[in-house]
Simulated assay, not measured.
Amino acid sequence: MAKTKDLNTEKLEYDFQQFYQKLEDFNYDLKEFIHGSLKASENQGLLDKGYYKADEILDEIYIEIYENYSLISDISEFQRLLFRAGINKLETIKSQEVPDDITYHSLLKAELKALNEKFTTAGDGDRIMLEELDDISYVQNRGWLENIYLYEPLERQLVSTLCLDEAALLSDEKRKLLWVLYSTIPEKSKTVVELLVFGKQNLKTIAEILDVPQDFVDKIIFKVKERFRLV
């Protein structure tokens, strides 16, 4: 009996070792995705700063995935499951409740329309969203609330990954506009951006993780880049 218990313990330890070896390929990117998403949400005022930790969320994800580890057939499926679990955890944290009968396909299709913002030109030649003309902060000499910025490392990742003009980081006004433009991206589309920018996933993999056609992901990234050209 004791021998059987020892064998079971050894098998469990071996399974854990195999599990964590597979994790090594995705652990960093998954952690960066979760960390970046949390930081961005904190700086948008959606989450209390420092309350949630990427490491703690990762531990929960690993426990959940390990329970079904034996059913995972290949490394690509393992990657998709990890990132889907991360997205689900973040959505729960942000209290984003989506009905079960609504798919990412339909959500992203609706959000493509939301990304089609209307623009106009201000007196000084700057392009602005039409909606801003009715905003009190814009009317009052384009005044902004104090200290509205994204986390600086996140700003640099956005600028680099989306091939934006680095001048977006040179002035307070442009950094605040960057925050406004990022904050107003629809939530599901923002997940696509965060998988690309923070999670370092390519567009094909993002489509697989979200189980949507790559064409949708391509269009969202294109429209997001168009939005950021305002900076």
Rank of each mutant, 00 (worst) to 15 (best):
residue 173 E to P: 00
residue 174 K to Q: 14
residue 187 E to Y: 08
residue 188 K to Y: 10
residue 171 S to I: 07
residue 168 A to D: 13
residue 180 V to R: 15
residue 168 A to M: 09
residue 182 Y to N: 09
residue 177 L to G: 02
residue 167 A to C: 07
residue 167 A to S: 15
residue 170 L to I: 09
residue 190 K to A: 02
residue 181 L to E: 15
residue 188 K to P: 00
residue 196 L to G: 01
residue 187 E to A: 05
residue 172 D to F: 09
residue 175 R to E: 09
residue 185 I to R: 01
residue 180 V to Q: 14
residue 174 K to L: 11
residue 190 K to R: 12
residue 169 L to R: 11
residue 183 S to T: 11
residue 194 E to C: 12
residue 183 S to A: 11
residue 197 V to S: 00
residue 168 A to K: 03
residue 192 V to D: 04
residue 181 L to A: 08
residue 173 E to S: 00
residue 196 L to S: 03
residue 184 T to R: 12
residue 175 R to G: 09
residue 177 L to M: 12
residue 177 L to I: 13
residue 194 E to V: 10
residue 182 Y to L: 05
residue 167 A to N: 13
residue 190 K to H: 03
residue 177 L to H: 09
residue 179 W to V: 07
residue 180 V to F: 13
residue 181 L to V: 12
residue 185 I to M: 05
residue 195 L to H: 07
residue 193 V to R: 00
residue 192 V to H: 02
residue 189 S to P: 03
residue 183 S to I: 03
residue 176 K to D: 06
residue 174 K to C: 07
residue 179 W to N: 09
residue 176 K to Q: 15
residue 168 A to G: 12
residue 187 E to V: 08
residue 169 L to M: 14
residue 185 I to V: 06
residue 172 D to V: 14
residue 185 I to L: 03
residue 167 A to F: 11
residue 184 T to E: 15
residue 172 D to N: 15
residue 167 A to Q: 15
residue 192 V to E: 04
residue 179 W to Y: 14
residue 185 I to P: 01
residue 178 L to D: 05
residue 189 S to T: 04
residue 196 L to K: 01
residue 184 T to S: 12
residue 193 V to W: 02
residue 190 K to G: 00
residue 167 A to H: 11
residue 197 V to Q: 00
residue 172 D to C: 08
residue 179 W to G: 07
residue 179 W to I: 10
residue 194 E to W: 09
residue 184 T to A: 02
residue 167 A to I: 14
residue 167 A to W: 08
residue 187 E to I: 09
residue 172 D to W: 05
residue 191 T to I: 14
residue 168 A to F: 04
residue 187 E to Q: 08
residue 180 V to N: 13
residue 176 K to C: 06
residue 182 Y to W: 12
residue 172 D to Y: 09
residue 187 E to N: 08
residue 174 K to E: 15
residue 195 L to S: 05
residue 180 V to P: 06
residue 193 V to C: 02
residue 195 L to P: 09
residue 171 S to N: 10
residue 193 V to Q: 01
residue 190 K to P: 01
residue 177 L to Q: 11
residue 186 P to Y: 01
residue 179 W to C: 07
residue 167 A to Y: 11
residue 178 L to V: 05
residue 193 V to N: 01
residue 190 K to E: 06
residue 189 S to Q: 04
residue 193 V to M: 04
residue 181 L to C: 10
residue 172 D to E: 15
residue 195 L to R: 05
residue 181 L to Q: 12
residue 191 T to C: 06
residue 185 I to K: 00
residue 168 A to W: 03
residue 187 E to D: 10
residue 190 K to S: 06
residue 196 L to D: 01
residue 186 P to V: 05
residue 176 K to Y: 11
residue 183 S to N: 15
residue 180 V to C: 11
residue 177 L to E: 12
